[in-house]
Amino acid sequence: MPQESSTAASPDPIDNTDPRDLRMEILRLRDHSLGLVSHAEVLADRVVELETQNNELHEAFTNISRTAQRTIDELTQTNTALTQTNTALTQTNTELTQTNTELNEVNQALRVELNRSPLIRIARGVARRFKLVQ
């Protein structure tokens, strides 16, 4: 016939004076300790994984940043060139406007001079005489 023994449970091991419960608690703590070691290795591997990802992201951002900067520099250069061209064009435009004004003035003066010319008058009289104009 089997012999019998029994074990009592305790809510907090530190208050427990039952040697069997305490031995079970020692086992639990030994297991927990080893579990923490392996868990730490898992976490360490995760850290390495994250660091690798971080480095990859950093590299990608650096590349993107470098490319973007290059594009910005090129655009800035283009913008500067366009501004210069624009300035030159504006200046040319101003000069052309001025020339145009001067030409208009000359034209106006020529018209006045023409109206005063005796030849023009004679020509107009001849034209009226022969009813070439009303």
Binding site: L27, R28, D31
Partner: peptide, 10 residues
């Protein structure tokens, strides 16, 4: 087994 905490009750 005892040195390793035997079976994990977790």
């Amino acid at each position: 087994l005892l040195s390793l905490g035997a079976f994990s009750i977790d």
